[in-house]
């Protein structure tokens, strides 16, 4: 009986122990994540002075004022264009490059090492370098093209908000595709060659093998890279802030740079918090769709 009690106590302690080990992480999460989230929600419903002084709750006034700003709607549109363009094109590009890198050719290891560079370099450095490359007055792109005789006079690559934003999307793609490449490449290396050999014996075409073998087996890799990229690109700050700071006339902002400007340049912390919450809701919606689809597939 005594032994039984001791054993029960031991079991209870053993089942309790994981929570003890998890406690520091849980505490950290509460302090670093839950408290800031609560604070942002609270600020979004508060009147905040330019000095940072919270003057009390003001309901949904911040949200209404944000919705009245044309810049907000342009920003929202940009955010979707930015996320879809960067994630979509870098996924396609990364997939193609991964297929190439999965083939045997001389210098493959070297090329694989080079491809990782854009992703491994700090975003801020990439952004500054690209800003200088495309500068019309002294940028290396114009100088190079003129030396090659392709242009007579310097081209202003960022003359309009649209071209400026397109360049920013390109930089986003350039720094994102290596991650996709290596996600896909790791998946490709896990596919058994015998599957392709069997398909070849059956007379399958390249596209048939692609859609019946490669893509289905790469689905987990594509899912992880796409979801992580959506989160990462949606919240990406350095590229746009370094290259344009949302200029001209707030035409090249995404939600993250816009809320940063509202908070740290315009002194409108209440509005910034409202924009932050809106971004939160959008991502929560996307995450919910992903969770529903993912769990449904698992049930099937």
């Amino acid at each position: 009986m005594i032994q039984n009690n001791a054993s029960k106590k031991k079991n209870a302690a053993a089942s309790f122990m994981p929570y003890v080990w998890l406690l520091p992480s849980i505490l950290l999460m509460v302090i670093m994540i839950i408290v800031p989230i609560y604070t942002v929600f609270q600020i979004s419903f508060s009147e905040v002075g330019r000095t940072g002084k919270i003057k009390g709750l003001n309901g949904i006034t911040n949200y209404l004022e944000v919705f009245e700003e044309p810049a907000f709607w342009t920003t929202l549109q940009n955010t979707f264009v930015w996320t879809i363009a960067v994630v979509g094109i870098s996924t396609l590009l990364g997939f193609i490059i991964a297929m190439v890198l999965n083939q045997e050719f001389a210098g493959r290891k070297f090329v694989r090492a080079v491809v990782i560079f854009p992703w491994a370099t700090a975003l801020i450095i990439q952004s500054v370098i690209w800003k200088y490359i495309i500068n019309a007055d002294y940028g290396s792109l114009n100088v190079l093209l003129r030396k090659l005789g392709l242009i007579d006079s310097f081209v202003n690559w960022t003359a309009t908000p649209q071209t400026m934003f397109a360049w920013e999307c390109w930089v986003g793609i350039f720094v994102t595709f290596p991650f996709v490449t290596f996600c896909i490449l790791s998946g490709l290396q896990g596919i058994d060659d015998s599957l392709y050999e069997a398909a070849a014996v059956d007379g399958s075409s390249f596209w048939h093998k692609m859609f019946r073998i490669t893509l289905p087996l790469l689905r987990p890799n594509l899912t992880v890279s796409t979801v992580l990229n959506i989160i990462y690109v949606f919240n990406s700050f350095p590229i746009i802030w370094t290259i344009s700071k949302g200029a001209p006339a707030d035409q090249t902002h995404t939600l993250v740079t816009y809320l940063y400007q509202l908070s740290f340049a315009d002194g409108k912390s209440g509005h910034a918090a409202a924009v932050s919450v809106i971004g939160f809701v959008i991502l929560a919606f996307c995450a919910s769709i992903y969770m529903i689809l993912s769990l449904r597939r698992e049930e099937e």
Binding site: I37, S263, A265, A287, Y290
Partner: peptide, 26 residues
């Protein structure tokens, strides 16, 4: 997969609030 879904979803939603912890100004 379920755990991964939940973790990714949580990361996705939580990261939306990044960068707006407090402070303000010009």
């Amino acid at each position: 997969k379920k755990v991964l879904s939940v973790l990714l979803a949580a990361a996705m939603t939580v990261s939306a609030l990044a960068g707006c912890g407090g402070g303000s100004a010009e």
